[in-house]
Deep mutational scan, measured.
Amino acid sequence: TEDARKEAKKIIDNGGSPDEAAKFIKKYGLSEDQARELVKRAL
């Protein structure tokens, strides 16, 4: 979702790792793979 993508970008912009961002956005109901893909797109 757009919200999850924004959250991921915010985490990374604040110095978080892509892994942290992926873990965080899994709470939106995404699978591990979906979360990682979304983080990649957010970069």
Rank of each mutant, 00 (worst) to 15 (best):
T1F: 15
T1Y: 15
T1W: 15
E2Q: 09
E2H: 11
E2I: 10
E2M: 09
D3N: 11
D3A: 14
A4S: 02
A4R: 02
A4V: 07
A4Y: 10
A4K: 06
A4T: 02
A4I: 12
R5H: 10
R5W: 15
R5T: 10
R5D: 06
R5V: 15
R5P: 04
R5E: 13
K6L: 13
K6T: 10
K6M: 12
K6E: 11
K6I: 12
E7L: 10
E7H: 08
E7F: 07
A8P: 03
A8Q: 03
A8D: 02
K9D: 04
K9F: 09
K9V: 07
K9Y: 08
K9C: 11
K10H: 10
K10L: 10
K10W: 13
K10R: 14
K10M: 09
K10S: 09
K10N: 08
K10E: 10
K10Y: 11
K10G: 06
I11A: 05
I11G: 00
I11Q: 03
I11V: 05
I11R: 02
I11F: 11
I11D: 02
I12W: 05
I12M: 12
D13Q: 12
D13I: 07
D13V: 06
D13F: 09
D13N: 09
N14W: 07
N14P: 02
G15T: 02
G15D: 02
G16H: 03
G16S: 06
G16P: 02
G16M: 09
G16F: 07
G16D: 05
G16K: 02
S17F: 04
S17P: 05
S17D: 08
S17Y: 03
S17M: 05
S17G: 04
P18E: 11
P18M: 11
P18I: 13
P18D: 06
P18G: 06
D19N: 07
D19P: 00
D19F: 11
D19K: 07
D19Q: 11
D19R: 08
D19A: 11
E20T: 06
E20L: 08
E20P: 00
A21S: 03
A21N: 01
A21H: 03
A21L: 15
A21E: 03
A21F: 14
A22Q: 08
A22S: 06
A22D: 04
A22T: 10
A22H: 06
K23C: 14
K23D: 14
K23A: 14
K23E: 15
K23T: 12
F24C: 14
F24T: 10
F24L: 11
F24W: 11
F24K: 09
F24D: 05
F24N: 07
F24G: 10
I25A: 06
I25Y: 03
K26W: 06
K26P: 02
K26M: 15
K26I: 15
K26R: 14
K26F: 07
K27A: 06
K27S: 07
K27R: 10
K27Q: 10
K27T: 05
Y28I: 02
Y28R: 00
Y28G: 02
Y28E: 03
G29E: 02
G29H: 03
G29F: 03
L30W: 04
L30V: 05
L30N: 00
L30P: 00
S31W: 01
S31I: 00
S31Q: 03
S31F: 00
S31H: 02
E32T: 04
E32D: 14
E32R: 00
E32G: 01
E32Y: 10
D33S: 10
D33P: 04
D33Q: 11
D33C: 15
Q34A: 10
Q34M: 08
A35E: 03
A35N: 01
A35D: 00
R36C: 15
R36K: 12
R36W: 15
R36M: 13
E37G: 00
E37Y: 01
E37P: 00
E37M: 04
L38Y: 02
L38D: 04
L38K: 01
L38N: 00
L38S: 01
V39R: 01
V39S: 01
V39E: 05
V39I: 11
K40F: 12
K40P: 01
K40L: 14
K40E: 14
K40Y: 14
R41S: 14
R41E: 15
R41V: 12
R41G: 12
R41Q: 15
R41P: 06
R41I: 14
A42S: 05
A42Y: 14
A42V: 15
A42M: 15
L43M: 13
L43G: 05
L43Y: 08
L43N: 05
L43E: 05
L43W: 08
